[in-house]
Nucleic acid binder design. Sequence first.
DNA 1: TCAAAAGTGTTGGACCTACACCCATGT
DNA 2: ACATGGGTGTAGGTCCAACACTTTTGA
Lengths: 281, 281
Amino acid sequence: MEENFFKPSVTVDSIVFTIRDSKQENYRKLPEKKLQILLVKRGQEPFCDKWSLPGTFVQEKERLEEAVNRSLKEKANISNIYLEQLYTWGDPARDPRERVISTSYMGLVDSEDIKLKAGKNIHEIDWFTIHTTVTKQTRKENRHGYQKIEEMEIKLESKTEILKNKVKVVKELVDGNMIIYTQIIQSDLAFDHAKLIVYALDRLKNKVEYTTIAFHLMPEKFTLTKLQQVYEILLDKPLLKANFRRKIADMVIETEEQEENAGHRPSRLYRFNTNWQPHVF
Amino acid sequence: MEENFFKPSVTVDSIVFTIRDSKQENYRKLPEKKLQILLVKRGQEPFCDKWSLPGTFVQEKERLEEAVNRSLKEKANISNIYLEQLYTWGDPARDPRERVISTSYMGLVDSEDIKLKAGKNIHEIDWFTIHTTVTKQTRKENRHGYQKIEEMEIKLESKTEILKNKVKVVKELVDGNMIIYTQIIQSDLAFDHAKLIVYALDRLKNKVEYTTIAFHLMPEKFTLTKLQQVYEILLDKPLLKANFRRKIADMVIETEEQEENAGHRPSRLYRFNTNWQPHVF
DNA sequence: TCAAAAGTGTTGGACCTACACCCATGT
DNA sequence: ACATGGGTGTAGGTCCAACACTTTTGA
Protein backbone atom coordinates (compact mmCIF):
# COMPACT_ATOMS: atom_id res chain seq x y z
CA MET A 1 0.00 0.00 0.00
CA GLU A 2 1.02 3.52 -0.70
CA GLU A 3 1.47 6.01 2.15
CA ASN A 4 -2.05 6.85 3.25
CA PHE A 5 -2.34 8.62 6.57
CA PHE A 6 -4.67 11.42 5.76
CA LYS A 7 -8.44 11.00 5.71
CA PRO A 8 -10.78 13.90 5.11
CA SER A 9 -14.43 14.18 6.02
CA VAL A 10 -16.72 13.69 3.05
CA THR A 11 -20.10 15.31 2.60
CA VAL A 12 -22.75 15.56 -0.07
CA ASP A 13 -24.68 18.74 -0.86
CA SER A 14 -27.66 19.10 -3.13
CA ILE A 15 -28.78 21.92 -5.33
CA VAL A 16 -32.49 21.29 -5.79
CA PHE A 17 -34.18 23.32 -8.51
CA THR A 18 -37.83 23.76 -9.21
CA ILE A 19 -39.98 26.10 -11.27
CA ARG A 20 -42.81 27.76 -9.42
CA ASP A 21 -45.55 30.29 -10.05
CA SER A 22 -44.55 33.66 -8.73
CA LYS A 23 -47.67 35.70 -9.51
CA GLN A 24 -50.90 35.69 -11.48
CA GLU A 25 -52.22 39.02 -12.71
CA ASN A 26 -55.79 38.19 -13.62
CA TYR A 27 -58.01 35.19 -14.20
CA ARG A 28 -57.12 35.06 -17.86
CA LYS A 29 -53.35 35.41 -17.79
CA LEU A 30 -51.09 32.48 -17.11
CA PRO A 31 -49.13 32.76 -13.87
CA GLU A 32 -45.56 33.97 -14.23
CA LYS A 33 -42.99 31.30 -13.42
CA LYS A 34 -39.56 31.51 -11.83
CA LEU A 35 -36.59 29.22 -11.30
CA GLN A 36 -36.16 28.52 -7.61
CA ILE A 37 -33.69 26.73 -5.39
CA LEU A 38 -34.07 24.97 -2.06
CA LEU A 39 -32.10 26.36 0.90
CA VAL A 40 -32.03 25.50 4.58
CA LYS A 41 -31.04 27.70 7.51
CA ARG A 42 -28.33 25.91 9.44
CA GLY A 43 -28.99 24.97 13.05
CA GLN A 44 -25.36 24.31 13.97
CA GLU A 45 -21.87 25.70 13.88
CA PRO A 46 -20.15 26.60 11.73
CA PHE A 47 -22.26 29.16 9.90
CA CYS A 48 -25.11 28.66 12.36
CA ASP A 49 -28.23 30.53 11.21
CA LYS A 50 -26.78 31.07 7.75
CA TRP A 51 -28.70 29.78 4.74
CA SER A 52 -27.03 26.87 3.00
CA LEU A 53 -27.56 23.96 0.66
CA PRO A 54 -29.03 20.85 2.26
CA GLY A 55 -26.27 18.31 2.83
CA THR A 56 -24.84 15.75 5.20
CA PHE A 57 -21.76 13.77 6.09
CA VAL A 58 -21.43 10.50 4.24
CA GLN A 59 -21.68 7.59 6.64
CA GLU A 60 -19.56 4.49 6.79
CA LYS A 61 -21.73 1.99 4.96
CA GLU A 62 -23.60 4.32 2.71
CA ARG A 63 -23.22 5.11 -0.97
CA LEU A 64 -23.05 8.77 -1.98
CA GLU A 65 -26.52 8.79 -3.55
CA GLU A 66 -27.90 7.18 -0.41
CA ALA A 67 -26.42 10.00 1.64
CA VAL A 68 -28.00 12.60 -0.66
CA ASN A 69 -31.38 10.95 -0.46
CA ARG A 70 -31.12 10.63 3.32
CA SER A 71 -30.19 14.28 3.76
CA LEU A 72 -33.08 15.48 1.62
CA LYS A 73 -35.47 13.23 3.51
CA GLU A 74 -34.19 14.21 6.96
CA LYS A 75 -33.75 17.91 6.35
CA ALA A 76 -36.46 18.80 3.87
CA ASN A 77 -38.92 15.93 3.78
CA ILE A 78 -38.21 15.38 0.10
CA SER A 79 -37.88 11.94 -1.40
CA ASN A 80 -37.76 10.26 -4.73
CA ILE A 81 -36.59 13.07 -6.94
CA TYR A 82 -34.31 13.18 -9.97
CA LEU A 83 -30.68 13.50 -8.86
CA GLU A 84 -27.52 13.79 -10.84
CA GLN A 85 -23.96 14.02 -9.56
CA LEU A 86 -22.27 17.24 -10.56
CA TYR A 87 -18.87 17.94 -9.13
CA THR A 88 -16.61 17.21 -6.19
CA TRP A 89 -15.20 20.18 -4.34
CA GLY A 90 -11.89 19.54 -2.68
CA ASP A 91 -10.27 22.86 -1.92
CA PRO A 92 -8.40 22.38 1.40
CA ALA A 93 -9.73 25.70 2.72
CA ARG A 94 -13.40 25.34 1.85
CA ASP A 95 -14.40 24.47 5.42
CA PRO A 96 -12.97 26.76 8.13
CA ARG A 97 -12.38 24.00 10.68
CA GLU A 98 -11.10 20.88 9.03
CA ARG A 99 -10.76 19.52 5.57
CA VAL A 100 -14.10 18.52 4.09
CA ILE A 101 -14.50 17.23 0.56
CA SER A 102 -18.01 17.62 -0.81
CA THR A 103 -19.72 16.04 -3.76
CA SER A 104 -22.57 18.12 -5.12
CA TYR A 105 -25.73 16.75 -6.69
CA MET A 106 -28.31 18.55 -8.76
CA GLY A 107 -31.91 17.73 -7.95
CA LEU A 108 -34.91 18.58 -10.11
CA VAL A 109 -38.54 18.50 -9.00
CA ASP A 110 -41.96 19.55 -10.02
CA SER A 111 -42.82 21.95 -7.22
CA GLU A 112 -46.34 20.58 -6.84
CA ASP A 113 -44.81 17.34 -5.65
CA ILE A 114 -43.22 18.84 -2.59
CA LYS A 115 -44.38 19.81 0.86
CA LEU A 116 -41.37 21.30 2.60
CA LYS A 117 -40.78 20.70 6.31
CA ALA A 118 -37.68 21.86 8.19
CA GLY A 119 -36.01 18.78 9.64
CA LYS A 120 -32.93 17.62 11.54
CA ASN A 121 -30.47 20.37 12.54
CA ILE A 122 -32.34 22.88 10.45
CA HIS A 123 -33.93 26.10 11.69
CA GLU A 124 -35.82 27.00 8.54
CA ILE A 125 -36.34 25.84 5.00
CA ASP A 126 -37.57 27.71 1.93
CA TRP A 127 -37.56 28.13 -1.83
CA PHE A 128 -35.52 31.06 -3.16
CA THR A 129 -36.03 32.63 -6.56
CA ILE A 130 -32.77 32.95 -8.49
CA HIS A 131 -31.85 36.21 -10.16
CA THR A 132 -28.51 36.33 -11.92
CA THR A 133 -26.86 39.34 -13.51
CA VAL A 134 -23.54 39.49 -15.26
CA THR A 135 -21.97 42.70 -13.98
CA LYS A 136 -18.69 42.68 -15.81
CA GLN A 137 -17.10 40.79 -18.65
CA THR A 138 -13.54 41.13 -19.82
CA ARG A 139 -11.49 39.24 -22.31
CA LYS A 140 -7.75 39.51 -22.73
CA GLU A 141 -5.74 37.82 -25.42
CA ASN A 142 -2.27 36.68 -24.43
CA ARG A 143 0.57 34.65 -25.78
CA HIS A 144 -0.88 31.31 -24.70
CA GLY A 145 -4.51 31.93 -25.61
CA TYR A 146 -6.83 34.20 -23.69
CA GLN A 147 -8.40 34.94 -20.34
CA LYS A 148 -12.09 35.61 -19.86
CA ILE A 149 -13.31 37.03 -16.59
CA GLU A 150 -16.98 37.22 -15.78
CA GLU A 151 -18.36 38.83 -12.66
CA MET A 152 -21.81 37.67 -11.67
CA GLU A 153 -24.32 38.63 -9.05
CA ILE A 154 -26.66 35.94 -7.78
CA LYS A 155 -29.59 37.28 -5.80
CA LEU A 156 -31.67 34.68 -3.97
CA GLU A 157 -35.07 35.84 -2.86
CA SER A 158 -37.68 34.20 -0.65
CA LYS A 159 -40.86 35.76 0.69
CA THR A 160 -38.94 37.18 3.63
CA GLU A 161 -35.27 37.32 2.73
CA ILE A 162 -32.82 38.42 0.11
CA LEU A 163 -29.38 36.80 -0.09
CA LYS A 164 -26.72 38.46 -2.18
CA ASN A 165 -23.74 36.75 -3.73
CA LYS A 166 -21.03 37.87 -6.06
CA VAL A 167 -18.65 35.54 -7.82
CA LYS A 168 -15.91 35.86 -10.38
CA VAL A 169 -15.56 33.15 -12.99
CA VAL A 170 -12.19 33.00 -14.68
CA LYS A 171 -11.82 30.98 -17.87
CA GLU A 172 -8.28 30.77 -19.01
CA LEU A 173 -6.84 29.08 -22.06
CA VAL A 174 -3.28 28.08 -21.29
CA ASP A 175 -1.39 26.21 -23.99
CA GLY A 176 -4.63 24.96 -25.44
CA ASN A 177 -5.94 23.78 -22.09
CA MET A 178 -9.02 25.46 -20.70
CA ILE A 179 -8.86 26.18 -17.00
CA ILE A 180 -11.98 27.39 -15.23
CA TYR A 181 -12.06 28.54 -11.66
CA THR A 182 -14.61 30.35 -9.60
CA GLN A 183 -13.91 32.78 -6.83
CA ILE A 184 -16.40 34.08 -4.28
CA ILE A 185 -16.18 37.83 -3.86
CA GLN A 186 -19.04 38.16 -1.45
CA SER A 187 -21.68 35.73 -0.23
CA ASP A 188 -24.52 35.57 2.26
CA LEU A 189 -24.47 31.78 2.08
CA ALA A 190 -22.57 29.28 4.22
CA PHE A 191 -19.26 27.79 3.06
CA ASP A 192 -18.51 27.97 -0.67
CA HIS A 193 -22.13 27.17 -1.52
CA ALA A 194 -22.40 30.16 -3.84
CA LYS A 195 -19.86 28.41 -6.07
CA LEU A 196 -21.77 25.16 -6.06
CA ILE A 197 -24.93 27.00 -7.06
CA VAL A 198 -23.26 28.84 -9.94
CA TYR A 199 -21.83 25.57 -11.19
CA ALA A 200 -25.18 23.79 -10.98
CA LEU A 201 -27.02 26.61 -12.72
CA ASP A 202 -24.53 26.54 -15.52
CA ARG A 203 -24.85 22.81 -15.97
CA LEU A 204 -28.64 22.89 -15.84
CA LYS A 205 -28.92 25.63 -18.47
CA ASN A 206 -26.40 23.90 -20.64
CA LYS A 207 -28.03 20.50 -20.53
CA VAL A 208 -31.44 21.82 -21.51
CA GLU A 209 -30.29 22.23 -25.07
CA TYR A 210 -29.16 18.72 -25.76
CA THR A 211 -30.98 16.50 -23.26
CA THR A 212 -34.49 16.00 -21.93
CA ILE A 213 -33.50 17.17 -18.46
CA ALA A 214 -36.20 19.84 -18.42
CA PHE A 215 -38.90 17.17 -18.17
CA HIS A 216 -37.78 16.43 -14.62
CA LEU A 217 -39.11 19.85 -13.66
CA MET A 218 -42.56 18.91 -14.99
CA PRO A 219 -45.42 16.93 -13.50
CA GLU A 220 -46.36 13.67 -15.19
CA LYS A 221 -48.95 15.36 -17.34
CA PHE A 222 -48.46 18.91 -18.55
CA THR A 223 -49.50 21.39 -21.21
CA LEU A 224 -47.11 22.34 -23.98
CA THR A 225 -47.27 25.97 -22.95
CA LYS A 226 -46.04 25.10 -19.46
CA LEU A 227 -43.23 23.07 -21.00
CA GLN A 228 -42.37 26.04 -23.17
CA GLN A 229 -42.30 28.33 -20.15
CA VAL A 230 -39.79 26.02 -18.48
CA TYR A 231 -37.58 26.07 -21.57
CA GLU A 232 -37.85 29.83 -21.80
CA ILE A 233 -36.77 30.26 -18.20
CA LEU A 234 -33.82 27.94 -18.53
CA LEU A 235 -32.70 29.25 -21.91
CA ASP A 236 -33.46 32.77 -20.76
CA LYS A 237 -35.15 33.89 -23.97
CA PRO A 238 -38.63 33.83 -25.50
CA LEU A 239 -39.46 31.07 -27.96
CA LEU A 240 -41.99 31.00 -30.78
CA LYS A 241 -44.87 28.68 -30.01
CA ALA A 242 -45.25 26.99 -33.38
CA ASN A 243 -41.54 26.32 -33.70
CA PHE A 244 -41.16 25.11 -30.14
CA ARG A 245 -43.96 22.63 -30.63
CA ARG A 246 -42.45 21.25 -33.79
CA LYS A 247 -39.07 20.89 -32.06
CA ILE A 248 -40.31 18.92 -29.05
CA ALA A 249 -43.02 17.09 -31.00
CA ASP A 250 -41.54 13.63 -30.71
CA MET A 251 -40.40 14.00 -27.12
CA VAL A 252 -44.02 14.05 -25.96
CA ILE A 253 -47.15 11.96 -26.31
CA GLU A 254 -50.63 13.40 -26.46
CA THR A 255 -53.06 12.22 -23.80
CA GLU A 256 -56.84 12.33 -23.95
CA GLU A 257 -57.04 14.79 -21.08
CA GLN A 258 -57.44 18.52 -21.18
CA GLU A 259 -56.90 21.30 -18.70
CA GLU A 260 -60.04 23.37 -18.31
CA ASN A 261 -61.42 26.35 -16.36
CA ALA A 262 -58.64 28.58 -17.51
CA GLY A 263 -60.48 31.53 -18.99
CA HIS A 264 -59.49 30.52 -22.49
CA ARG A 265 -59.49 27.55 -24.80
CA PRO A 266 -58.63 24.39 -22.86
CA SER A 267 -55.23 22.91 -23.54
CA ARG A 268 -54.37 19.33 -24.11
CA LEU A 269 -52.18 17.47 -21.62
CA TYR A 270 -49.10 15.62 -22.76
CA ARG A 271 -46.66 13.27 -21.14
CA PHE A 272 -43.02 12.51 -21.80
CA ASN A 273 -42.29 10.00 -24.55
CA THR A 274 -40.03 7.45 -22.89
CA ASN A 275 -39.14 6.09 -26.31
CA TRP A 276 -37.55 9.32 -27.40
CA GLN A 277 -33.94 9.24 -28.45
CA PRO A 278 -31.79 12.03 -29.81
CA HIS A 279 -31.31 11.93 -33.58
CA VAL A 280 -28.08 10.19 -34.44
CA PHE A 281 -26.41 10.71 -37.77
CA MET B 1 -21.64 20.23 14.21
CA GLU B 2 -23.45 17.18 13.06
CA GLU B 3 -22.27 13.71 14.07
CA ASN B 4 -19.15 13.12 12.04
CA PHE B 5 -17.01 10.21 13.12
CA PHE B 6 -16.39 8.48 9.86
CA LYS B 7 -13.64 9.54 7.49
CA PRO B 8 -12.87 7.61 4.33
CA SER B 9 -9.68 7.65 2.31
CA VAL B 10 -9.93 9.73 -0.83
CA THR B 11 -8.07 9.07 -4.05
CA VAL B 12 -7.99 10.46 -7.56
CA ASP B 13 -7.70 8.30 -10.68
CA SER B 14 -7.13 9.47 -14.21
CA ILE B 15 -8.29 8.08 -17.50
CA VAL B 16 -5.80 9.50 -19.99
CA PHE B 17 -6.76 9.14 -23.64
CA THR B 18 -4.68 9.70 -26.71
CA ILE B 19 -4.92 8.88 -30.39
CA ARG B 20 -1.91 7.13 -31.84
CA ASP B 21 -0.78 5.64 -35.11
CA SER B 22 -1.18 1.90 -35.06
CA LYS B 23 0.23 0.98 -38.46
CA GLN B 24 1.27 2.42 -41.83
CA GLU B 25 0.88 0.20 -44.86
CA ASN B 26 3.02 1.99 -47.44
CA TYR B 27 4.70 5.31 -48.00
CA ARG B 28 1.60 6.77 -49.62
CA LYS B 29 -1.13 5.72 -47.23
CA LEU B 30 -1.84 7.64 -44.06
CA PRO B 31 -1.15 5.67 -40.89
CA GLU B 32 -4.17 4.11 -39.24
CA LYS B 33 -5.06 5.71 -35.90
CA LYS B 34 -6.52 4.22 -32.72
CA LEU B 35 -7.90 5.51 -29.46
CA GLN B 36 -5.63 4.50 -26.61
CA ILE B 37 -5.61 4.71 -22.85
CA LEU B 38 -2.81 4.94 -20.32
CA LEU B 39 -2.49 2.12 -17.80
CA VAL B 40 0.09 1.31 -15.13
CA LYS B 41 0.96 -2.06 -13.62
CA ARG B 42 0.60 -1.77 -9.87
CA GLY B 43 3.66 -2.36 -7.71
CA GLN B 44 1.77 -2.79 -4.43
CA GLU B 45 -1.05 -4.60 -2.75
CA PRO B 46 -3.90 -4.79 -3.29
CA PHE B 47 -4.04 -5.92 -6.91
CA CYS B 48 -0.23 -6.00 -7.09
CA ASP B 49 0.91 -6.64 -10.69
CA LYS B 50 -2.54 -5.91 -12.04
CA TRP B 51 -2.97 -3.17 -14.62
CA SER B 52 -4.84 -0.14 -13.33
CA LEU B 53 -5.50 3.55 -13.89
CA PRO B 54 -2.82 5.88 -12.58
CA GLY B 55 -4.00 7.39 -9.30
CA THR B 56 -2.99 8.43 -5.82
CA PHE B 57 -4.27 9.26 -2.37
CA VAL B 58 -5.17 12.90 -1.89
CA GLN B 59 -2.87 14.51 0.63
CA GLU B 60 -3.74 16.82 3.46
CA LYS B 61 -2.96 20.20 1.93
CA GLU B 62 -3.54 19.41 -1.67
CA ARG B 63 -6.44 20.21 -3.99
CA LEU B 64 -7.86 17.34 -6.04
CA GLU B 65 -6.43 18.59 -9.33
CA GLU B 66 -3.04 18.95 -7.67
CA ALA B 67 -3.24 15.32 -6.63
CA VAL B 68 -4.08 14.26 -10.18
CA ASN B 69 -1.22 16.24 -11.63
CA ARG B 70 1.17 14.89 -9.02
CA SER B 71 0.16 11.29 -9.65
CA LEU B 72 0.60 11.65 -13.40
CA LYS B 73 3.97 13.27 -12.91
CA GLU B 74 5.20 10.71 -10.36
CA LYS B 75 3.84 7.60 -12.01
CA ALA B 76 3.96 8.34 -15.70
CA ASN B 77 6.19 11.37 -16.19
CA ILE B 78 3.30 13.29 -17.73
CA SER B 79 2.64 16.91 -16.96
CA ASN B 80 0.62 19.80 -18.20
CA ILE B 81 -2.20 18.01 -19.97
CA TYR B 82 -5.88 18.79 -20.33
CA LEU B 83 -7.80 17.40 -17.36
CA GLU B 84 -11.46 17.42 -16.57
CA GLN B 85 -13.22 16.06 -13.50
CA LEU B 86 -15.67 13.30 -14.35
CA TYR B 87 -17.29 11.49 -11.48
CA THR B 88 -16.82 10.49 -7.87
CA TRP B 89 -17.12 6.82 -7.06
CA GLY B 90 -18.27 6.11 -3.55
CA ASP B 91 -19.53 2.56 -3.41
CA PRO B 92 -18.56 1.25 0.07
CA ALA B 93 -17.31 -2.01 -1.43
CA ARG B 94 -15.19 -0.67 -4.25
CA ASP B 95 -11.92 -1.25 -2.39
CA PRO B 96 -11.54 -4.68 -0.76
CA ARG B 97 -9.75 -3.41 2.38
CA GLU B 98 -11.24 -0.18 3.55
CA ARG B 99 -13.57 2.44 2.24
CA VAL B 100 -11.98 4.54 -0.48
CA ILE B 101 -13.81 7.24 -2.36
CA SER B 102 -12.27 8.09 -5.69
CA THR B 103 -12.74 11.05 -7.98
CA SER B 104 -11.96 10.27 -11.59
CA TYR B 105 -10.49 12.71 -14.09
CA MET B 106 -10.35 12.45 -17.84
CA GLY B 107 -7.05 13.48 -19.41
CA LEU B 108 -6.49 14.15 -23.10
CA VAL B 109 -3.11 14.42 -24.81
CA ASP B 110 -1.50 14.52 -28.17
CA SER B 111 0.58 11.35 -28.06
CA GLU B 112 3.63 13.05 -29.60
CA ASP B 113 3.87 15.17 -26.46
CA ILE B 114 4.50 12.25 -24.19
CA LYS B 115 7.49 10.14 -23.25
CA LEU B 116 6.22 7.53 -20.82
CA LYS B 117 8.38 6.41 -17.91
CA ALA B 118 7.22 4.03 -15.18
CA GLY B 119 7.52 5.85 -11.86
CA LYS B 120 6.79 5.52 -8.16
CA ASN B 121 5.20 2.22 -7.05
CA ILE B 122 4.70 1.21 -10.66
CA HIS B 123 6.11 -1.88 -12.33
CA GLU B 124 5.19 -1.03 -15.89
CA ILE B 125 3.42 1.60 -17.91
CA ASP B 126 1.91 1.46 -21.39
CA TRP B 127 -0.69 2.66 -23.86
CA PHE B 128 -3.56 0.26 -24.56
CA THR B 129 -5.76 0.38 -27.64
CA ILE B 130 -9.44 0.33 -26.77
CA HIS B 131 -11.81 -2.03 -28.56
CA THR B 132 -15.42 -1.98 -27.44
CA THR B 133 -18.19 -4.29 -28.57
CA VAL B 134 -21.78 -4.28 -27.50
CA THR B 135 -22.62 -7.93 -27.01
CA LYS B 136 -26.23 -7.72 -25.92
CA GLN B 137 -28.95 -5.14 -25.78
CA THR B 138 -32.35 -5.57 -24.26
CA ARG B 139 -35.17 -3.20 -23.59
CA LYS B 140 -38.18 -3.93 -21.46
CA GLU B 141 -41.17 -1.66 -21.03
CA ASN B 142 -42.79 -1.70 -17.62
CA ARG B 143 -45.41 0.19 -15.68
CA HIS B 144 -43.05 2.97 -14.59
CA GLY B 145 -41.14 3.44 -17.83
CA TYR B 146 -38.58 1.04 -19.18
CA GLN B 147 -35.33 -0.74 -18.51
CA LYS B 148 -32.46 -0.90 -20.97
CA ILE B 149 -29.63 -3.32 -20.39
CA GLU B 150 -26.48 -3.18 -22.43
CA GLU B 151 -23.66 -5.67 -22.15
CA MET B 152 -20.32 -4.46 -23.37
CA GLU B 153 -16.92 -5.97 -23.87
CA ILE B 154 -13.91 -3.70 -23.52
CA LYS B 155 -10.70 -5.20 -24.84
CA LEU B 156 -7.52 -3.30 -24.01
CA GLU B 157 -4.53 -4.20 -26.10
CA SER B 158 -0.87 -3.22 -25.79
CA LYS B 159 2.05 -4.59 -27.77
CA THR B 160 2.39 -7.45 -25.30
CA GLU B 161 -0.88 -7.86 -23.45
CA ILE B 162 -4.62 -8.15 -23.87
CA LEU B 163 -6.94 -7.23 -21.01
CA LYS B 164 -10.55 -8.30 -21.20
CA ASN B 165 -13.44 -6.66 -19.43
CA LYS B 166 -17.15 -7.17 -19.51
CA VAL B 167 -19.64 -4.76 -18.01
CA LYS B 168 -23.38 -4.44 -17.85
CA VAL B 169 -24.92 -1.00 -18.06
CA VAL B 170 -28.46 -0.75 -16.78
CA LYS B 171 -30.51 2.33 -17.63
CA GLU B 172 -33.80 2.36 -15.86
CA LEU B 173 -36.57 4.91 -16.04
CA VAL B 174 -38.46 4.84 -12.76
CA ASP B 175 -41.31 7.31 -12.34
CA GLY B 176 -39.73 9.60 -14.87
CA ASN B 177 -36.32 9.46 -13.20
CA MET B 178 -33.46 7.94 -15.14
CA ILE B 179 -31.21 5.71 -13.07
CA ILE B 180 -28.00 4.44 -14.61
CA TYR B 181 -25.76 1.93 -12.96
CA THR B 182 -22.85 -0.08 -14.19
CA GLN B 183 -21.91 -3.55 -13.05
CA ILE B 184 -18.64 -5.33 -13.72
CA ILE B 185 -19.18 -8.88 -14.90
CA GLN B 186 -15.56 -9.69 -15.49
CA SER B 187 -12.41 -7.58 -15.47
CA ASP B 188 -8.65 -7.99 -15.79
CA LEU B 189 -8.15 -4.56 -14.26
CA ALA B 190 -7.66 -3.58 -10.62
CA PHE B 191 -10.56 -2.35 -8.48
CA ASP B 192 -13.63 -1.07 -10.35
CA HIS B 193 -11.46 0.64 -12.93
CA ALA B 194 -13.33 -0.99 -15.81
CA LYS B 195 -16.35 1.06 -14.73
CA LEU B 196 -14.40 4.28 -14.63
CA ILE B 197 -13.11 3.62 -18.12
CA VAL B 198 -16.55 2.91 -19.54
CA TYR B 199 -17.86 6.09 -17.97
CA ALA B 200 -14.99 8.18 -19.33
CA LEU B 201 -15.33 6.73 -22.81
CA ASP B 202 -18.98 7.54 -22.83
CA ARG B 203 -18.40 11.09 -21.74
CA LEU B 204 -15.60 11.64 -24.23
CA LYS B 205 -17.63 10.36 -27.18
CA ASN B 206 -20.60 12.38 -26.09
CA LYS B 207 -18.77 15.64 -25.68
CA VAL B 208 -17.19 15.47 -29.11
CA GLU B 209 -20.48 16.39 -30.68
CA TYR B 210 -21.15 19.63 -28.87
CA THR B 211 -17.76 20.86 -27.62
CA THR B 212 -14.26 21.35 -28.95
CA ILE B 213 -12.84 18.70 -26.65
CA ALA B 214 -11.33 16.77 -29.58
CA PHE B 215 -8.77 19.52 -30.10
CA HIS B 216 -7.06 18.49 -26.87
CA LEU B 217 -6.06 15.28 -28.60
CA MET B 218 -4.29 17.28 -31.33
CA PRO B 219 -0.89 18.94 -31.50
CA GLU B 220 -0.79 22.71 -31.76
CA LYS B 221 -0.64 22.57 -35.55
CA PHE B 222 -2.41 19.84 -37.45
CA THR B 223 -3.85 18.93 -40.82
CA LEU B 224 -7.59 18.83 -41.32
CA THR B 225 -7.42 15.19 -42.32
CA LYS B 226 -5.83 14.29 -38.99
CA LEU B 227 -8.53 16.22 -37.21
CA GLN B 228 -11.13 14.36 -39.23
CA GLN B 229 -9.55 11.03 -38.29
CA VAL B 230 -9.86 11.95 -34.61
CA TYR B 231 -13.52 12.81 -35.04
CA GLU B 232 -14.13 9.61 -36.97
CA ILE B 233 -12.58 7.51 -34.24
CA LEU B 234 -14.53 9.21 -31.48
CA LEU B 235 -17.84 9.26 -33.34
CA ASP B 236 -17.13 5.78 -34.64
CA LYS B 237 -18.25 6.44 -38.19
CA PRO B 238 -16.75 7.74 -41.43
CA LEU B 239 -17.30 11.38 -42.34
CA LEU B 240 -17.33 13.08 -45.73
CA LYS B 241 -14.33 15.31 -46.18
CA ALA B 242 -16.02 18.30 -47.79
CA ASN B 243 -18.81 18.37 -45.24
CA PHE B 244 -16.50 17.88 -42.28
CA ARG B 245 -14.36 20.80 -43.39
CA ARG B 246 -17.35 23.08 -43.72
CA LYS B 247 -18.57 22.08 -40.27
CA ILE B 248 -15.32 22.79 -38.44
CA ALA B 249 -14.36 25.73 -40.67
CA ASP B 250 -14.66 28.41 -38.04
CA MET B 251 -13.15 26.37 -35.23
CA VAL B 252 -9.75 26.48 -36.96
CA ILE B 253 -7.36 29.04 -38.38
CA GLU B 254 -5.20 28.44 -41.40
CA THR B 255 -1.45 28.80 -40.90
CA GLU B 256 1.16 29.45 -43.56
CA GLU B 257 2.81 26.11 -42.96
CA GLN B 258 2.41 22.89 -44.87
CA GLU B 259 3.20 19.28 -44.16
CA GLU B 260 5.43 17.82 -46.86
CA ASN B 261 7.19 14.60 -47.84
CA ALA B 262 4.04 12.60 -47.70
CA GLY B 263 3.90 10.96 -51.10
CA HIS B 264 1.01 13.14 -52.14
CA ARG B 265 -0.02 16.77 -52.30
CA PRO B 266 1.20 18.59 -49.17
CA SER B 267 -1.48 19.58 -46.70
CA ARG B 268 -1.93 22.86 -44.97
CA LEU B 269 -1.51 23.06 -41.20
CA TYR B 270 -4.21 24.64 -39.06
CA ARG B 271 -4.49 25.62 -35.43
CA PHE B 272 -7.43 25.92 -33.09
CA ASN B 273 -9.36 29.18 -33.23
CA THR B 274 -9.44 30.34 -29.61
CA ASN B 275 -12.14 32.83 -30.53
CA TRP B 276 -14.57 30.13 -31.52
CA GLN B 277 -17.87 30.00 -29.71
CA PRO B 278 -20.80 27.71 -30.30
CA HIS B 279 -23.64 29.27 -32.23
CA VAL B 280 -26.27 30.59 -29.87
CA PHE B 281 -29.81 31.22 -30.98
C1' DT C 1 -68.44 40.20 -26.86
C1' DC C 2 -63.59 39.95 -26.02
C1' DA C 3 -59.15 38.97 -23.90
C1' DA C 4 -56.20 35.45 -23.63
C1' DA C 5 -54.26 31.46 -24.82
C1' DA C 6 -54.52 27.04 -27.91
C1' DG C 7 -53.20 25.48 -31.94
C1' DT C 8 -51.83 25.23 -37.19
C1' DG C 9 -50.08 26.66 -41.89
C1' DT C 10 -46.73 29.00 -44.98
C1' DT C 11 -42.66 30.93 -46.84
C1' DG C 12 -37.77 32.11 -47.63
C1' DG C 13 -33.45 31.08 -46.24
C1' DA C 14 -29.86 28.53 -43.92
C1' DC C 15 -27.67 24.43 -43.46
C1' DC C 16 -26.65 19.51 -44.43
C1' DT C 17 -25.91 15.22 -47.24
C1' DA C 18 -24.10 13.08 -50.95
C1' DC C 19 -21.40 13.02 -54.73
C1' DA C 20 -18.43 14.66 -58.39
C1' DC C 21 -14.53 16.61 -59.75
C1' DC C 22 -9.79 18.73 -60.09
C1' DC C 23 -5.00 19.52 -57.94
C1' DA C 24 -0.33 18.47 -56.24
C1' DT C 25 3.04 15.45 -54.73
C1' DG C 26 6.89 11.56 -54.25
C1' DT C 27 8.39 7.65 -56.09
C1' DA D 1 2.69 7.70 -64.92
C1' DC D 2 -0.06 6.89 -61.00
C1' DA D 3 -1.63 6.11 -56.38
C1' DT D 4 -2.89 8.75 -52.76
C1' DG D 5 -4.54 12.25 -50.28
C1' DG D 6 -5.61 17.57 -50.56
C1' DG D 7 -9.03 20.47 -51.61
C1' DT D 8 -13.58 22.62 -53.65
C1' DG D 9 -18.18 23.06 -56.04
C1' DT D 10 -23.04 21.96 -56.48
C1' DA D 11 -27.78 20.09 -56.37
C1' DG D 12 -31.60 18.48 -53.67
C1' DG D 13 -33.61 17.92 -49.51
C1' DT D 14 -34.45 18.95 -44.71
C1' DC D 15 -34.87 21.86 -41.06
C1' DC D 16 -35.76 26.28 -38.91
C1' DA D 17 -37.01 31.26 -37.85
C1' DA D 18 -40.54 34.37 -38.41
C1' DC D 19 -45.02 35.56 -39.00
C1' DA D 20 -49.93 35.15 -39.93
C1' DC D 21 -53.98 33.20 -39.04
C1' DT D 22 -57.99 30.40 -36.99
C1' DT D 23 -60.18 28.24 -32.85
C1' DT D 24 -62.02 27.89 -28.23
C1' DT D 25 -63.01 29.13 -23.85
C1' DG D 26 -64.85 31.80 -19.21
C1' DA D 27 -66.53 35.76 -17.58
